[in-house]
Design a protein around this nucleic acid. Structure first.
Lengths: 248, 248
DNA sequence: TTAAACCCCGCAAAAACACGCAAAAAAAAA
DNA sequence: TTTTTTTTTGCGTGTTTTTGCGGGGTTTAA
């Protein structure tokens, strides 16, 4: 059999089943493991599949949301990196949705071992790319606006969770008004998320500082970390310097 | 033999089998390897075939590489359209994951009003684009392989659901072995999904017909609809014609 | 911890290939 | 027809590609 044909058959298997085991290919194609491994290596190098221990995966799933334009991506990445500094091996993390959290999910250290609960399918999909993470997607009604799960079912499940750290984005932060939002259901959700975690970090690009929305989620006193893309020492953040809130 | 005749014979072989081995041509035409190699070289230069190590391929041999991301997409869309025919306003639908289901989610009629339960974040994201659909993402552990939620928590939630129609893809279908799969957890999940619905439809591209994987999900008797991209009257499907199974 | 499965690396044999050369064949010219 | 020229072919030789195997390391699951 020609090598190209073999590659073709392998790709067929991958496209058919989304994943394939090296051992299955060995018996299917009647060649040695080494040959299969070398084939997978090559196909992997040309990005036609993703090689993993014991076999290979389809690329089709992995590349769905990569090239979406993200507003202020650099700022969000900067925030994400700071937030990642809070995450240690073995922690249980609870995350909300939003582009900043998705960026964060893309920038985690590859060898991190942790448990992530999230209400965002997008975040879950990104987190699932890390071998060592346990990812739990909290289920419930799916919000068309916020693209997260919400509603009583989600709230119920959050009651059973006690995370080490909660990471959420926000619509608005204000020195006296604290954390505010526009949507009542999302508001409820964030409140519950905060109460389901020992510590909470707010990820917030600087232009949302000093703004207020209609519905209050939490006071600054209930938050442990405020993370923006600007330097923690910057005077712009002076109004937020209270004892219980660490600015990163 | 004239060179031109040889070339014609080589092309005939190529057109006949889509591929040819150098060694086969040597014994077929009783000339030296070098001659064959030179012929293939020439034919390749005039783009009549594609030369590869060990032989040559037809130019019309489209490797599945060329359309990795859209592999069998047409087939899947065809299947999706047939499956959509089963969906009526007001129904409660339960869906699994997989590319076919994602295609289906993209092709729904815009004004459909229905409730969708799904274990796939991808499907949920697509469904959320329809104004009139209620989308419930069933939460739980998120499978890195299958990209769906799974595990006991999912199973528990499925216990509380009684859908009108369950739509799932499959790894393999066989006339006697029925529905089979490779992953134990996904296996459990599919079993439960089937039992959580009044009717069940299997979405399956024809290449998966007559194949079997390690673990049994269900017999054909437990399935109500088998949907492939090929015509329902096609003889290829004869082995699947049992009273309780409608082929679309 | 151990056993099994998986992976990586380098080697060596076999297969495939490339290139020059000269004989053979074909074509062209005398 | 004979001679010359061109083309084609097969062979020898050396190179590259492919493949299986052994040894040894790593990962995984019990």
């Amino acid at each position: 059999m020609l090598k190209k044909e073999r590659h073709d058959l392998i790709m067929r298997q991958i496209n058919l089943h989304n994943r394939v085991l090296t051992s299955d290919l060995v018996s299917l194609l009647n060649v040695s493991e080494d040959t299969i491994r070398r084939d997978l290596q090559e196909l992997s190098e040309s990005k036609r599949l993703i090689k993993v221990h014991g076999g290979a995966l389809s690329t089709s799933y992995q590349s769905s949301f990569d090239d979406v334009h993200v507003y202020a991506r650099d700022a969000k990445r900067c925030i994400a990196k700071k937030a990642i500094g809070l995450i240690k091996d073995g922690m249980v993390i609870l995350t909300g949705g939003g582009t900043t959290l998705i960026e964060l999910a893309k920038l985690l250290p590859p060898q991190l071992t942790a448990t992530f609960f999230t209400v965002s399918p997008y975040v879950a999909i990104e987190l699932a790319k890390y071998e060592k993470l346990e990812v739990i997607l909290i289920g419930g009604l799916f919000s068309k606006n916020s693209q997260v799960t919400y509603g009583s079912h989600v709230i119920n499940q959050l009651s059973e969770i006690n995370a080490d750290l909660c990471l959420i984005g926000t619509s608005a932060v204000h020195p006296t008004n604290g954390l505010t939002d526009t949507d009542w259901e999302i508001n409820q959700l964030k409140k519950k998320m905060l109460s389901s975690s020992k510590r909470a970090a707010i990820l917030c690009i600087s232009e949302k500082l000093n703004t207020t929305q209609r519905l209050k989620v939490a006071s600054l006193e209930n938050i442990n970390y405020l993370i923006t893309e600007i330097d923690a020492a910057c005077t712009e953040l002076n109004d937020y310097r209270i004892k219980t809130l660490k600015i990163l």
